[in-house]
């Protein structure tokens, strides 16, 4: 099983890649780790005249570490993310999520950048990106810009990254206070896409008040989404079991899952959102040093 013919280009620099993409008149797509794109091409669900392989562009392989943030180049693999102390020590949620992506072979090739751009409604990285309020850095013919996590996904398999633009890196900012995070994913079998996934990061101040609440849901809407009402149930309040329960319930009401024969009914998934959100919040609060 192999794809229809295509032209293949392998630029060595970001500049060259942007130029090639810009002059392709919409015929070209980026090839990163290929873990989503190659199966699609092989099954001929998509056909693409030109692939621009960004796998050899060194500047996209960097992990940046500044005082305020960590920046993950779009070609850093899931395996590198999983094993990076810089990332894992500052953002344990990213490390936790990385372990849930597919299997070792998929993680050796796949990238967070590719996963976000692919925008699978069931992608794990989307939930994490939203919970941490990440920023996507993109570069195109008109220069560079940033896209925040709330305007990144625009629907199933679509994002606000233009077809003439390349996602270069994803940036995550530190937050103040005592921080805790957790990812709860239900999957049918090892390495499967989520039936439901809930990513959570919270922080509390010395009085126990919630000073940050980030909750990203996956597999329960047209794209990974923020559980904004659930976050409101927590923000500024002392985190008690009761608040956690009402936030989890709010999350289960505000998502929009569909019935599917493989992973269950919409009602079942709503129920799982409630369960996973509660579990994730309890773990996150405990990790932050909160008392429940």
């Amino acid at each position: 099983m192999y794809p229809g013919s295509f032209d293949y280009q392998r630029p060595q620099t970001l500049q060259e890649a942007v130029r090639l993409l810009g002059t392709s008149q919409g015929d070209a797509r980026i090839l990163a780790g290929g873990m989503s794109l190659i199966p699609l091409l092989k099954s001929r669900l998509v056909s693409i005249p030109t692939l621009i392989d960004i796998g050899r562009i060194d500047e996209l392989r960097k992990i940046g570490n500044t005082e305020k943030s960590v920046t993950i180049g779009s070609m850093v693999t899931d395996h590198e993310i999983e094993n990076s102390r810089i990332i894992g020590d500052r953002f344990p949620l990213i490390r936790e999520v990385s372990r849930w992506i597919g299997d070792p072979q998929v993680r050796n090739r796949g990238t967070m950048g590719g996963s976000l751009c692919h925008a699978d409604p069931s992608g794990d990285w989307g939930a994490c990106f939203i919970a941490l309020r990440g920023k996507a850095h993109v570069e195109g013919p008109n220069g560079s810009r940033e896209i925040d996590s709330d305007s990144f996904f625009t629907g199933p398999f679509s994002t606000s990254v233009d077809i003439s633009e390349i996602l270069t890196a994803i940036e995550f900012h530190d937050i103040d206070g005592m921080v805790g995070s957790a990812y709860e994913k239900i999957e049918r079998k090892a390495g499967d896409f989520a039936t439901v996934g809930v990513a959570v990061q919270i922080s509390i101040d010395e009085k126990g008040n919630c000073t940050y609440a980030g909750i990203g849901l996956t597999s329960v809407s047209a794209s990974p989404v923020r559980a904004a009402k659930a976050e409101k149930e927590l923000y500024g309040k002392v985190l008690t079991m009761r608040n956690i329960e009402s936030a989890a319930l709010a999350a289960s009401h505000e998502c929009d899952p569909t019935d599917d024969p493989l992973r269950g009914s919409a009602d079942f998934k709503r129920y799982l959102v409630n369960v996973c959100a509660k579990r994730a919040l309890i773990r996150a609060v405990k990790e932050a040093g909160g008392v429940l």
Binding site: L31, P39, P104
Partner: peptide, 27 residues
């Protein structure tokens, strides 16, 4: 499987396990 799921096609590339049915030779 030829659909990236079974791992029968796994080889090492520069020491890392990869599914060779989900990579182009040019890569």
């Amino acid at each position: 499987c030829d659909t990236s799921n079974c791992g029968a096609c796994t080889v090492l590339m520069d020491g890392y396990s990869v599914k060779s049915c989900t990579m182009f030779a040019v890569q």
